[in-house]
Design a protein around this nucleic acid. Structure first.
Ligand SMILES: [Mn+2]
Ligand SMILES: [Mn+2]
Ligand SMILES: [Zn+2]
Ligand SMILES: [Zn+2]
Lengths: 151, 151
DNA sequence: AATGATATTGAGATTTGTTCTCAATTATCT
DNA sequence: AGATAATTGAGAACAAATCTCAATATCATT
């Protein structure tokens, strides 16, 4: 099942239609292979002369999230970021507070652990996110160098 | 070391002072044993006639986060929530999308998993959060009942 | 204690991401 | 086709968070 079908199923279930606008947004989301903000996505569509309004973009993204196609990310202090997840293996984010880099990692072990934890509580998972914040290896290296020099 | 000392150390390191306002906010945060929003905290202080401005509360919370005393939570779609973490065992959040309940769980196994993952990447953790969203056992129960009746 | 330099605060203005409004448009049903 | 319902777009409205800047508090020095 491709993302289009998933979305159509979701829309049907919720008495919504697959309109031209929604299709444009859906495709844009799956053409974007990085984390994005809604405003960015909207500007990209304008640039490409695809006619959808900001309001519609803002209205549509939550549908994609609900449909399980897109995930809202929570690692950043700044604006909400999103990423498409359907068809991609789950992964976690490590966010460097120094250089703002985001490292993506997957860990089947961690996944299993989370699922086990949820099962024990009879909690039905829809989505989960692991975000780790701290300092990446590159920044740590620089930091220890700096200390070496100064001392 | 109590939270006060931790904060004083942090402030010193950053050439900041422990002022009356900051002290009031610090204490309020550690008197609040639930997740809170900054505006809520501010209103609570007003109610108690503690004189600090909204701006100062907004300015101070990030210091507490940086000092490792407070964590910003990311489970909700609504406003930012915070909780004090210093002196408390780490725990994870399961957020029910139906009833909005938040279940707190700790799992040393999961913690170890995350730490191992970070170590492998030479990533220095400052904080991490695991948030699971879905449906809690109570809501799931009701849901299956509903289906049983209707079918 | 007085002086000057520096840091902090508070009230309200401002910014900014997001949501809302409602008339116009588009799709669906009979 | 005509009636009914859903969706859209432009801009207004909203609200959380940040910024501004004069007043105040704190600190360091004499
Ligand atoms: Mn990612
Ligand atoms: Mn908690
Ligand atoms: Zn870094
Ligand atoms: Zn529930």
């Amino acid at each position: 099942m491709d993302y289009r079908e998933v979305f159509i199923n979701y829309l049907k279930k919720n008495d919504l239609q697959l309109t031209k606008s929604r299709e444009i947004i859906l495709d844009a989301v799956f053409e974007t292979h990085s984390h994005f903000e809604i405003e960015e996505l909207y500007q990209m569509l304008r640039y490409k002369n695809k006619k959808v309004s900001r309001a519609t973009v803002y209205r549509t993204i939550p549908y994609l999230v609900e449909a399980g196609l897109v995930r809202r990310l929570r690692y950043s202090d700044q604006n909400e970021q999103y990423e498409h997840i359907y068809g991609h293996p789950n992964h976690f984010h490590l966010h460097c507070l120094n250089c703002d880099r985001v490292i993506e990692q997957n860990s089947p072990e961690l996944e299993k652990n989370i699922e086990k934890l949820a099962k024990r509580l009879n909690f039905k998972i829809q989505d989960y996110s692991v975000s780790i914040s701290g300092h990446c290896s590159l920044c740590e290296e620089k930091e220890t160098e700096r200390i070496d020099i100064n001392e």
